[in-house]
Design a protein around this nucleic acid. Structure first.
Length: 590
RNA sequence: GGGGGUGUGGCGAAGUUGGUUAUCGCGCCGGCCUGUCAAGCCGGAGAUCGCGGGUUCGAUCCCCGUCACUCCCGCCA
């Protein structure tokens, strides 16, 4: 490097006119007019137009002829205001340009495999293989910078509020239930495995028992499950735990964090307390435990209306223990074609619904394949309950409760978008509270809704022996625009209760001792009441930036098959390496 | 594990109802050009149409399989 950089590419303005400066960066674009040549010089901070004029430096102008996209250069030159009418107002530095007196080519670039600054439509395979180039584009780079700023504000917030940041192990122990674990073989202990943490849950509880009182960590977590647009196998949690608190304290702490973030990054005053909804209400009215409250289209329970319906599909669903629910797509009759309505059924089949019935409230009365089956009084009750008016479209699903919830919940989101009911600029936060302690798994056995360390609501604890699935917990999720961005609970701090919950979950005393022995012990050594929550940092960044994929907020993301195309992970290892680990690879035929 | 989408020069797309030489834009290479800002003009190179098999006189196109990327369901205490 012949010269030392004096300025960044995003900071020169008219005020610098006349100064001699040195800029370094990447050639983003070149415009060679034969006589004069313009180069857009790019670095992390922005873009500056530099001018090669043969009258200023013949040598530099000559060398500049060969500059191409992504060459790395350093230039020395004079800042001049642009000629009258030549300013580029789209550019922070658009009022000036730098006339080059000396050019140093620091590193030529091969022709890049894609246009670095217009890569939106390029195949993910190419982008991920050359991720270091993709990260050079402004969008992705700015996403990462934004993420860094958010992390910084979060860290400051917790430190300012007397939280201690503690790192917990990445090599830890597999726990039953939950997601599939990533395993790491132990060389020193042949045949044994560490697991990468799905979350630092037990460590943060241990820290409460240690008396840290307030802990946080921005922690990498690992879950070996299939990927989605908003899900990667390794992801980041903002993990929080507090002692001597109840649910209100935790909620209050987290709400205030989001108020700080909204102020800092969106200049908005988040109104506190945030709205709350019970789990039961969310499931009933929105078909989801993470309802998108940016629009209405509430789900209405109609099982009573249709329990003796003339329409057998509806009546039978109720008779078989299921339900009939509907959404009124207010005023959508003109907007939805017959095909739109027919397309609902294949859509709902993704969620195991057999079909979606509909009624279009036309000028000349209801149009629908099913109204002819309705008795007079049931039709009347229906329209009244649905508040149905001319121009509305009612859509129905009749099935088991879980199928109805899921399919109508999905249809609600679908029509929220299709009917343009969503203000894309809104950031709508809310809490979902009063989660049930247990859900039924496939075999009807109880499985924790949150996790097995969640405490029952004290007033419900007596129901553990009589009406298990009625027991609610002090568990809470925070929801942003229909995505769960965090969740937590008040934990069990009593050994006897923890043992009891394990036994309800079918974890025997032996097994509990083996898997969670230390926790059961620790709970006997003065465990304070405690609770906390974990936030999904990747998702929060995604929603703040309105990116379509979680890949856009992670520097080096995995493909949908959980591979890294840049490093080619996961890879094979030498036989010797496996032997050292006492591992043999076998092939399983399906 | 299941369902959907995509795959054509380096990148993005068009196209072939199965038929000579696969089209366009960007990029790349060469030339011209002193005010552009994803500059303009002229010329050029560059493609086993993801891979394998089948049908056919003939396949980039039809069929079967497979791979990669992607979205969804299952899964994600």
């Amino acid at each position: 490097m012949k010269f030392k950089r004096t300025h960044k590419c995003g900071e020169l303005t008219k005020k610098n006119a006349g100064e001699t400066v040195v800029l370094s960066g990447w050639v983003e674009n070149y415009r060679d007019h034969g006589g004069v040549e313009f180069i857009d010089l790019n670095d992390r901070w922005g873009l500056t137009q530099v001018v090669f004029d043969p009258e200023v430096s013949g040598a530099a102008h000559k060398d500049a002829q060969h500059l191409r996209s992504q060459d790395v250069i350093s230039i020395k030159g004079e800042v001049r205001p642009r000629p009258e009418g030549m300013a580029n107002l789209n550019l922070a530095t658009g009022e000036i340009e730098v006339y080059v007196t000396e050019l140093e080519i620091l590193n030529k670039s091969k022709t890049p495999p894609f246009d670095v600054n217009h890569a939106e439509n390029v195949n993910q395979e190419t982008r991920l293989t050359y991720r270091y180039l993709d990260l050079r584009n402004n969008d992705l780079r700015n996403n990462m910078i934004f993420r860094s700023k958010v992390s910084h504000v979060i860290r400051n917030y917790f430190v300012d509020n007397a939280f201690v940041e503690v790192e917990t192990p990445v090599l830890t122990k597999a726990t039953p239930e939950g997601a599939r674990d990533y395993l790491v073989p132990s060389r020193v202990n042949a045949g044994k495995f560490y697991a990468l943490p799905q979350s630092p849950q037990l460590f943060k509880q241990a820290l409460m028992i240690s008396g840290f009182d307030r802990y946080f960590q921005i922690a990498k977590c690992f879950r070996d499950e299939d990927l989605r647009a908003d899900r990667q196998p390794e992801f980041t949690q903002v993990d929080v735990e507090m002692s001597f608190v109840d649910q209100e304290d935790v909620i209050d702490t987290i709400e205030k964090l989001f108020a700080v973030l909204m102020k800092e990054f969106f200049e908005k005053n988040l109104e506190l307390p945030l709205p709350r909804m019970t789990y039961d209400q969310a499931m009933l009215e929105y078909g989801s435990d993470a309802p998108d409250l940016r629009f209405g289209l509430k789900i209405v329970e109609l099982s009573d209306v249709f329990k003796d319906s003339g329409f057998g599909v509806f009546a039978n669903a109720v008779k078989n223990g299921g339900c009939v629910r509907a959404i009124n797509l207010k005023g959508a009759a003109q907007l939805l074609s017959r095909k739109d309505l027919d397309d609902m059924t294949p859509f709902a089949k993704n969620y195991r619904a057999k079909g979606v019935a509909w009624i279009k409230m036309g000028e000349n009365g209801p149009q629908s394949p099913i109204v002819k089956f309705f008795k007079e009084d049931e039709a009347k009750a229906l329209y009244e309950k649905m508040n149905a008016e001319t121009g509305d479209v009612l859509i129905f699903v009749a099935d088991s409760e879980s199928v109805v919830r899921q399919s109508l919940g999905a249809l609600r989101d679908y029509f929220g978008k299709k009917l343009n009911l969503i203000d894309e600029d809104e950031l709508n936060f809310s809490w979902v509270v009063d989660f049930p302690m247990f859900e039924k798994d496939q075999d009807g056995n109880p499985t924790p809704t949150h996790h097995p360390f969640t405490a029952p609501k004290p007033e419900d604890a007596h129901l553990l022996d009589t009406d298990l699935f009625a027991v609610k917990s002090n568990a809470y999720d925070i929801v942003l625009n229909g995505s769960e961005i965090g969740g937590g609970s008040i934990r069990i701090h009593d050994n006897a209760m923890q043992k009891k919950i394990f036994s309800i979950l079918g974890i025997g005393e032996e097994e509990a001792k083996e898997k969670f022995g230390f926790l059961l012990d620790a709970l006997q050594f003065g465990a304070p009441p405690h609770g906390g929550l974990a936030l999904g940092l990747d998702r929060i960044i995604m929603l703040f930036l309105k990116t379509e994929s979680i890949r856009d907020v992670i520097a080096f993301p995995k493909t949908q098959k959980a591979t890294c195309l840049m490093t080619d992970a996961p890879g094979s290892v030498d036989k010797e390496q496996l032997e050292e680990l006492s591992i043999d690879v076998i092939t399983v035929d399906d």
